[in-house]
C-alpha cells in the first residue's frame, strides 16, 4: 500500500497538540490532546523477534461484532473450529485486545466506534478486514451509509475476502496474520501514527458528527 504519494505534506513536526475541535471547551479539558507518537521496536533484534513470535501466538481479538461477519466468528470460537487452539482469544475490552476484526461492511456510524476502539487498543495492534465489503464495498458499493475501502480509515494488515468467509478461511487468515507478525511486517499502528493527518482527513470527510477527541487515548 503506497500512501506516501497521496499524503498531502506531513506536518507532524510542527504539530504540538491536537485541536480536538469537535469537543466543547468543557470537554476539551477532560481529554488528552497529546499527539500520538510511533513506538520503537526493541533495540536488540533477537528480543524483537522473540516478542513477535509471542505476539503471533497470543492474539487477543476484540469482541466487537461490527457487521454480519460476526456470525461466522461464533463457530470459529466454539467447538467446531476452536480457534483457542491457536492462541486466538476474545477480549471484551479494547484496552487489552491486540487484534481488531472489522467483520464485514461498516456503516458510518459504526466506523466512528471502530476508530475509537482501534485507537484505544495498545500497540502493537493488528486489523483484519473480513469480507469483500471491507475491501471495495462489495454488495454495498453504492450504499450511502457504508464505507468502501477500510484501509483509508484505519490501517489494515490483512484482508479475508468472501461473503461470508467460511471459518476455515478465517483460520487460514489467522495463520497468515501470524506469519506476517512473525516476519515483522505488521506495523499498522506505526503507519497509522505516521500518516495520522491523512487518516484523520479521510475519517473526517466521512464522519460528519465528530464529537470525540481527535485521538482517543
Amino acid at each position: 500500500m503506497n500512501k506516501q504519494d497521496k499524503n498531502p505534506g506531513n506536518n507532524r513536526e510542527n504539530l504540538i497538540k491536537l485541536e480536538n475541535a469537535g469537543l466543547t471547551a468543557e470537554e476539551q479539558q477532560l481529554f488528552c490532546d497529546a499527539v500520538p507518537v510511533p513506538y520503537e521496536p526493541y533495540s536488540l533484534e533477537f528480543v524483537e523477534r522473540f516478542h513477535n513470535w509471542i505476539r503471533a501466538n497470543s492474539l487477543w481479538v476484540l469482541a466487537f461484532g461490527t457487521g454480519c461477519g460476526a456470525i461466522e466468528l461464533n463457530p470459529l470460537m466454539t467447538s467446531r473450529f476452536d480457534a483457542n487452539r491457536f492462541g486466538v482469544m476474545m477480549r471484551p475490552t479494547p484496552r487489552q485486545a491486540s487484534v481488531l476484526i472489522v467483520a464485514g461492511y461498516s456503516s458510518v456510524k459504526t466506523l466512528k466506534r471502530i476508530i475509537r476502539s482501534y485507537e484505544q487498543m495498545q500497540g502493537p495492534k493488528f486489523v483484519i478486514g473480513l469480507g469483500i465489503c471491507t475491501i471495495n464495498g462489495g454488495m454495498y458499493y453504492d450504499s450511502y451509509n457504508t464505507i468502501n475501502c477500510l484501509d483509508r480509515y484505519i490501517p489494515v494488515d490483512l484482508y479475508i475476502t468472501g461473503c461470508m468467509p467460511r471459518p476455515e478461511a478465517l483460520l487460514a487468515g489467522f495463520m497468515e496474520l501470524k506469519r506476517k507478525i512473525k516476519a515483522g511486517e505488521c506495523d499498522g499502528a506505526n503507519r497509522y501514527v505516521k500518516d495520522f493527518d491523512w487518516y484523520k482527513a479521510n475519517q473526517k470527510k466521512v464522519i460528519k458528527k465528530w464529537d470525540m477527541p481527535d485521538y482517543n487515548w
Binding site: 516478542h51 505476539r55 501466538n57 497470543s58 487477543w60 467447538s79 487452539r85 492462541g87 482469544m89 487515548w217
Partner: peptide, 29 residues
Amino acid sequence: MARVQGRIGIPIYQPFLDIIQTYGRRTAV
C-alpha cells in the same frame, strides 16, 4: 473446561505467552 464444552482448548503453555505478550506491548496509558 474446554473438554466439557467439546473443544480442545488452549495449549498448555498459552498463559506464559499471554503474560509475555501483555508485557511486550509497546504503549501504555
